[in-house]
Every structure is written in C-alpha cells, then in structure tokens.
Design a protein around this nucleic acid. Sequence first.
DNA 1: CTTTCTGCAAACGATTTGCAGCAGC
DNA 2: GCTGCTGCAAATCGTTTGCAGAAAG
Lengths: 139, 139
Amino acid sequence: MASVLAPGELRLTANRRALLAALDKATRPLTADELAGSAGVALSSAYRNLAELAAAGVVARVSTGGIDCFELAEQFSDHSHHHHLMCIECGIVTDFAPSPQLERLISREVEELAAQHGCEVISHVFDVRGLCRQCRPRR
Amino acid sequence: MASVLAPGELRLTANRRALLAALDKATRPLTADELAGSAGVALSSAYRNLAELAAAGVVARVSTGGIDCFELAEQFSDHSHHHHLMCIECGIVTDFAPSPQLERLISREVEELAAQHGCEVISHVFDVRGLCRQCRPRR
DNA sequence: CTTTCTGCAAACGATTTGCAGCAGC
DNA sequence: GCTGCTGCAAATCGTTTGCAGAAAG
C-alpha cells in the first residue's frame, strides 16, 4: 500500500485508507460486503467510498452479472493489465494476464470500432465465465 | 422467424412465440421490459420465459452492468458471432463483429487459460463500453 | 383431470440515498 | 461553525417467486 495517493478532491479518511489497504492486500477482486467486513466500515460507507474512489480512478469496479467486485485500478496495483475469470457457480473472480499479442490486437480492433460507429470507447472488457477448479468437480 | 424450434422440454406457447418473434425482429439486444411491451406479455412472464429459453440455449442473456438485455442465441440468429458495444449513458447495446483473427486468438487464449487454471470455460465476453453516437455530443 | 403457463402482487437482494450526529479544518 | 464523512434505516429498482385461475393436451 504505502503511497496510494488520493488525487485532488478526495480526503483520505480512516475508512478510505482501510478500504484501500484491504484492496491492496487482496489477491482477487472483492465484493463491497467483503471489503466492508475486512476494513471494518459500514456497508453503505463502503459502497459510497468505493464509488468515489472509482470515480477518482483509484479503484475499478468489476461488473460480474452477479455481485459487483472492486479492485485497485491498474495504475495503482502491483498487477499489470489483466482480465477476469469469473465462476458462475460461486461468484469468485480471479485475474489473469492476456498475451501482449492479444492485447495489441484488441486495442487495434477497438480503435477501428470507434471510427466505424462514431462512438467514443472508454473501456473494454474481456472476461471469461465458467466453473472454477473448486466448483467444477461437483456438477 | 419461422422455424426457431424450441428443443425438447419446452412448450411453444403464444407468449414464447411472441417473445421469439420480437427478438428475431430486433436489430439490437433488448431489455425484458422492451420485450414484454412489444410482445404484449406480462413483465414477469417475459422474465420467466426468457430465463427458460436461455436455459434451453435458444436465447442469450447479456449482462450489461445495468439492465440486462436478451437476444437470440447465435445459432438461431441471422447475425453471426458478435460482441457488444454498450453505451454507459443510455444503456443501448449494439452488436459488432470481431475480426476472425481476433476471434481465433481469443479462443486459443481461452483454451490455454482453462488448461492453466484447471477451470472449465463456458463462455467469454468481449464487450466495449463507451458513449454511443447519440450520447457522445452532449458530454 | 393433470400439467404447464399466465398475470398479479408480494418478496428479494444488491445498491443507493436521506438524515442526524460526528470529525476535521 | 462550516464542510465533508459516517452509520443507520429506509427507499429504489431490476429481477424473482408464490399463488390462484386459465389454457393445453
């Protein structure tokens, strides 16, 4: 953790510090509930702070189709660029790194897409859904 | 529409027929609410039938992070394999086709991933988020 | 008849929000 | 003191579910 700075408008309170510490310690994206628990803050405060940190670009919100998860934004994380592997059974989300080749191809394709459709691309998601090692056996 | 067959266990009622027709007519993934409206069925019945059709593999549910959308599964649709471009402002989802090169690379990567993590991959999502042509001007 | 499907209304659950008190400047 | 942060409880809203009657076979 150490020097995770809260840019500009955001005051670095004890709650936010605790949430960031929990996010930094985590080895996978965590739910607001998990974070609230391990940081010792009220659930509503966790949601509020995570939303603010996400708006400030410090935290990334991961939409899973089920319960959303949160992780440190890539620029503040140890882990480099990565995508998500989510288990449709237990909801656990783990990270994986794409090959540079794939990443290059994706960004080229995304640019092309923006040009063709006249839209502004803000982010892309490449997620994989399936059954994790634990859930696979029993199904 | 015509011969969109409902496989095995599923009775093809008027409601389901109407939903499938609406899906077939659509040029983009639609919400349950839109579908219920244009097919003239109760919202709860729309959700129930869409869930059943999705379980039967006839319909695909698209998780947007906002309101979920539905479309015909690829094997029953005119459109070939595609991905989604979703507007974070108005929620509209449009389809786009990836280059075959990208698709090839993705499936190779996904296989590798399954082998490495010991998980079973069921589907992959490559979605692009941003502002659509309509929403881009005013922001 | 029995089974499945329907619509309505009620329940659910993740997330958001209003509010009164508290903490920091 | 003003401002922003907190926790609680209540509201929101997409989605699901229980139920009694209708439809299909």
